[in-house]
Computed example of a mutant assay.
Amino acid sequence: MSILKIAIQKSGRLNEDSIQILKDSGISIDNGNDQLKATATNFPLEVYFLRNSDIPQYLIDGVVDAAIVGDNLLVEKGRNIQVVEKLGFSKCKVSVAVPKNFNYNSITDLNGLQIATSYPKTVSAYFKARQVEIDIHQISGSVEIAPNIGLSDAIVDIVSSGSTLFKNNLKEVEVILKSEAVLAVSPLISDESNQILDKLLFRIQSVLRARKSKYILMNVPNEKIQEISKILPVLKSPTIMPLAEENWSSLHSVIEEEKFWEVIDQLKAAGAEGILVCPIEKIVL
């Protein structure tokens, strides 16, 4: 029987969210402490727990069929690796940062300076495209301390909240790229494994739709149903159920969470009352 081999980060910011999205997709994984490999009990899936920086090469070589990995890592190390879905978590930026006392006006201020980074290819391509010559000092881990100990004039590193930069007296001055976790596929994946991947992708997409949406219920005067229905961005059309109180109905719909606050005042102004917003576990289209 064919089995899909998927890699996720062994530890770090991507690990927990990667495991969670698989679990939310109905996949049970018995992963004990320090396991390098775990098999799902209810889906043809084998999970490899790998060092983050090694994952692109495992995909390229076909050792694993797919991976949940940061998009920034694929930009740096991936080639011929297809991204089939953006997963919406572990969002970050790969940014240029300089000491707070650096008088920065534009990227040309970095011309001829030394930049420490774990992303030499990404950095080289970015500065070359802007015709700025730099000296790259490649290091791994604790990149942000490089200017403080005289290893570099600036850095390029992952920025999430910016707290690490602040603690090291650095400021962000350029964003090279924005990144998030993605589901990536090996160019050597077999047809059998690709069929399993399609089933996994279907599940993941159902989870992602639900994470972005909310189930909304409200009491509406019957004469306002049409007006309120036009306000709501819905999958197709709202569900209408009569209430015990005459000339009133309960209107049910699905709304994108980010759009809710845009329309809430309109709903209330149009006569909606008792508005409830509930989480959704899955949306299957």
Rank of each mutant, 00 (worst) to 15 (best):
S53T: 12
L285Y: 15
I139S: 04
V182E: 13
N222V: 08
Y104M: 02
S124T: 05
L243V: 02
V207A: 01
I145V: 14
S186T: 07
L165C: 09
E16M: 07
L177I: 09
T108P: 03
L217R: 14
S53R: 15
Q82L: 11
S140N: 12
L188S: 05
C278R: 10
N42L: 02
L208W: 00
G12P: 08
A7F: 14
A38P: 06
N194G: 08
S28G: 07
F260W: 12
T41Q: 13
E192M: 06
W248R: 12
I8K: 11
Y215E: 10
E258K: 11
F127G: 06
N247Y: 15
G88S: 09
G112L: 12
A38D: 13
V84C: 06
L151R: 13
A67F: 00
N219H: 12
V254C: 14
E227D: 10
N219T: 15
N194D: 08
I21C: 09
E85F: 11
R130N: 13
R13Y: 15
A270I: 00
I136V: 01
L36Q: 15
M218T: 00
V254K: 09
I176L: 11
K259P: 01
Q35P: 01
K10E: 10
E144P: 05
V277F: 00
I204C: 02
A154R: 01
R51W: 04
D65W: 00
F166T: 14
D61G: 14
W261F: 05
R51T: 08
D265Y: 10
V159G: 02
F102R: 02
E227G: 04
N222C: 08
R13G: 14
K23E: 15
E258S: 09
A67W: 07
L243G: 02
I60H: 13
E245K: 13
L151H: 08
M218H: 05
N52P: 13
K167V: 08
G62S: 05
R13A: 14
K10Q: 10
D157L: 13
I275N: 06
G12H: 04
K230G: 00
I275L: 07
L14Y: 07
S163N: 14
G162N: 09
N247M: 05
P120F: 01
L36Y: 10
T108C: 09
I134L: 02
L45H: 09
L14E: 13
I145A: 02
G112T: 11
L151K: 10
